[in-house]
Nucleic acid binder design. Structure first.
Lengths: 224, 224
DNA sequence: TAGATTGTTAATCGATTAACAATC
DNA sequence: TAGATTGTTAATCGATTAACAATC
């Protein structure tokens, strides 16, 4: 990544995409300028954090005035690489894969599902939403042919490791993994994990709000 | 939460659920003990981090020996509140909501989808996978009646804010939000956000690997 | 100019990690 | 006992935040 020297934390990149969403909303409402405070409040972050996030990339505001909504949005789109189109493949055309294919959030400007993959002979060769389903064995070829850069992994857990390996072998550098396995990647690969079962367990933990009384020799937890 | 005094970071809770997943896998394979190193390697975290994570809750290992796979799994299940059953409602029975309803990861032991909600009159009154679809206006009543504790929000963006408010009004303390809006909640509410469009933009950013050349007066980014 | 708001610094906060004493 | 591995400390690392000088 290229940006004023300092390394950009991944949380910052995540927030940038949220800032952009809000900016586009404000833009639709006809706003022309916005202050760091207004924008930050909308996302429940601190204004200083927003300014710091932007500072990794340059100076985009005007002191005393705030930011131009349209200009800042344009800057963020550029930083996020949304000025061009990315071709996506979804591997695993089950419930989740099919839903994502049809999900509006995935078909936003800048992204295009170009191919589907599965290993079920019943599915291979057919199409969903007009997108052809290939056999996973053809991954490398189709990736090359269709110039696919992003893979969404929605295979069942047992198939995940093998699928991930095939994806990396095919030269993919960006993976969005919905399967409940940890994929070890080199530094040149970005792999983001969305683990729905895990999120539920976090919620469960806070709901339960209980400790385990497994402590030994008096080392038991004290109710807070 | 009740645990040896110190506040538990949310990342720790997230990792606990991953540890459990791996432990269950090892348990199926017939393993009886496991060291922090083996378990940590599986998830690409440092052994010291795993031990530190566990230390928030007590002492569960045996020096020189490692951990009992079954005992540690049991401890984690307790910490994560998986020793009991939680009732879930899904609000928004579109592509994503329907997919999640059928998604295996969501129907794991400990979780049960008890009700669906939508505002589309075509859907209200019917059922999906045997679960009744209620009108969102009945949220508070049904939540009470069915003792629902967790809500999964899969409504389209424009409906998200209102839905979130209704959910909080209904007394729900745990929300898994797939809608691209930031929900402001009090400290007693846990709201986790899964933002698929945002994840894609992060991938796009790293793929593009470019800066914005918007800097003023020589403050342009330097290729790294 | 006076008021507003940025960009940036320095302080704070919190999480990760290496290292090691405790102990099975 | 010797070897292994935990639980815990202290050092490090990195991200957040308040505060303010710069400047529109």
């Amino acid at each position: 990544m290229i940006e004023n020297g300092k390394k950009v934390p991944q949380v910052t990149v995540k927030r940038l995409s949220r800032y952009l969403r809000v900016l586009e909303h404000f833009s639709e409402q006809g706003y022309e300028t916005i202050s760091s405070e207004e924008l930050a409040n909308e996302l429940h972050v601190k204004p200083s954090q927003l300014r710091k996030d932007l500072a990794y990339f340059g100076e985009f505001g005007t002191r005393g005035m705030g930011y131009s909504v349209s200009k800042l949005a344009e800057v963020l789109r550029k930083i996020l690489g949304l000025h061009r189109q990315w071709a996506i493949a979804i591997i695993g055309v089950g419930n989740l894969g099919t839903a994502l294919l049809r999900y509006k959030g995935l078909n936003e400007k800048g992204f295009r599902v170009a191919a589907l993959f599965d290993d079920d002979p019943e599915k291979v060769g057919s199409a969903r939403s007009g997108i052809h389903i290939y056999h996973v064995d053809n991954l490398a070829n189709v990736v090359k042919e269709k110039n696919i850069q992003i893979v969404i992994l929605t295979v069942p857990a047992p198939a995940a490791r093998a699928a991930a390996e095939a994806v990396i072998k095919a030269g993919i550098k960006s993976i969005l993994n919905f399967a409940p396995v940890s994929i070890k990647t080199g530094p040149e690969i970005t792999c983001l994990q969305v683990d729905i079962a895990s999120e539920l367990k976090i919620l469960s933990h806070y709901l339960a709000g209980q400790d385990v009384s497994g402590g030994k020799d008096g080392k038991v937890a004290i109710p807070g």
